[in-house]
Amino acid sequence: MKVMADDGMLSWDESVFRDEHVFEVDYLPETFHHRENQLDGLQYALRPAVRGSRPLNAMVRGPPGTGKTTAIQKLFAELDGRRGVRTVRVNCQVDSTRYAVFSRIFEAIFEYEPPASGISFKSLFEQITDHLTDEDEVLTVCLDDVNYLFYEGEASETLYSLLRAHETHAGAKVGVLLVSSDLDLDVVAELDSRVQSVFRPEEVFFPAYGESEVVDILDERVRRGFREGVVGPTVLDRVAELTAGTGDLRVGIDLLRRAGLHAEGRASERVEAEDVETAYEKSRHVHLSRRVRGLTDSERALLRVVAEYDGDRAGDVYEAFHDETDLGYTRYSEIVNKLDRVGLIEATYTTVEGRGRSRELSLAYDADAVRDRLD
């Protein structure tokens, strides 16, 4: 079946996209604009691995959507082809315990997952370090979104095991890259003193992109991802303006894709301003979607309760949360602190007459947007 075949209209088997994958989160661009200094800093830290030595540790910081993960992935892709070098990137939003991190490292090295139970951390650790020494491999581990390890109280133990590997296993050479989007988190200060004494990282900072830089980057995505003439300069400038307002390049990339899909829904061969404005209502919450996806069932349950009791005192919210999950107050308080730190809720102290100080819990986002992503 065909839609209207007038000029400027698409048929069912036509698309405005040349390559829709260009707008997916896992797409690795061939060229990486406006991050030359950051790449140089990371290459400096990683260069010893190519010579068979332990790489320098590095602390990579910057707001969300500023190219941190992309830079790591590009450099790791270059290193992976070299003999004697092993790279592993761990998403700590998903793997937020020491055991989970080392399970991911184990899987990357041996190409199968360790047993879900019945194997101790000590055994897991020794199999990894035995392999490194037997094969004379240098391991570089990127703990991406390392802030989530801090939220779970797992950061110091995880880093201690990685950084001290050469002491427990002579010949094991391990370097660590930490990546954090939480600018309020002082990573080194939050670590145990025993970890601080050995963790002396190179600092690499990724600032937010300026609007002209956003235009450059999105223009290349447009040329690679859309057919010629689909997105005009005026539309691209509007996408860049909205993206720069959020400080997150991922918003702009998602916005281009959604605007293209909206244009297709109108059977139009061009993306117009109306497509961008409509799509922005969802794209502006791309970081919210990402944060919600990483939550456990109990964390999602609390976020759902806060959405219902937005602005209420923590004690009242706890009663509703306990009724739903049967979890105790200690665990409840831990989850409140985590949701506050990841920016999903705001926990503010207020003075209640006759009761002293109490916390009020409110959403950091529109309640309907939160509910949509929890359903």
Rank of each mutant, 00 (worst) to 15 (best):
V187S: 01
A155C: 01
E281L: 11
P48D: 14
G229M: 03
R266W: 09
E277K: 02
Q43P: 00
V179S: 09
E135F: 09
E14G: 00
T69G: 03
G153H: 04
L288I: 06
S333A: 13
T325K: 07
R359D: 12
D312P: 00
D326K: 06
R89S: 15
V342E: 11
N57R: 04
V230A: 08
S268M: 14
D219K: 10
R18E: 15
R371Q: 14
G260L: 06
H34Y: 13
G84C: 08
I253W: 09
E167H: 10
T350S: 15
D316P: 00
M9S: 00
P207E: 14
R258F: 05
P201Y: 02
D40E: 13
V215E: 15
G81L: 10
P114I: 03
S180Y: 07
R258Y: 06
A77Q: 12
F106C: 01
V215P: 02
A71V: 06
R104H: 05
Y332C: 15
Y151K: 03
R250I: 14
K74F: 05
L46F: 15
D40K: 11
R35A: 12
D372V: 09
R357D: 13
A367H: 04
L236M: 07
G81K: 14
Q38H: 03
S53E: 13
L177P: 02
F206G: 09
S11G: 11
R223K: 15
R284T: 09
D95W: 05
V174C: 01
L79F: 06
R270F: 09
E107M: 10
G311I: 10
G343H: 03
D219N: 07
M4H: 06
G153A: 06
G229N: 05
R357L: 13
G265Q: 09
T296K: 15
V85L: 14
G84Y: 04
F226R: 05
G210A: 13
E360P: 00
R83E: 15
V286N: 11
D297W: 07
V235S: 12
A208H: 10
R47T: 09
H33K: 15
R82P: 01
R300V: 03
V138K: 01
L163H: 01
E190C: 01
D80P: 01
V317W: 11
E220A: 07
T66F: 14
V16W: 00
L302Y: 08
G328K: 14
D134E: 15
G210T: 08
E152C: 02
A208P: 10
L185A: 08
Q93R: 14
D375K: 14
H166M: 05
E78S: 07
A108V: 00
N337Y: 05
R341M: 09
N147P: 06
Y309N: 11
A77Y: 08
D186H: 06
R54M: 02
L295R: 01
E308N: 13
E324Y: 04
P48I: 04
D366G: 02
L242H: 02
Y209K: 12
T70W: 11
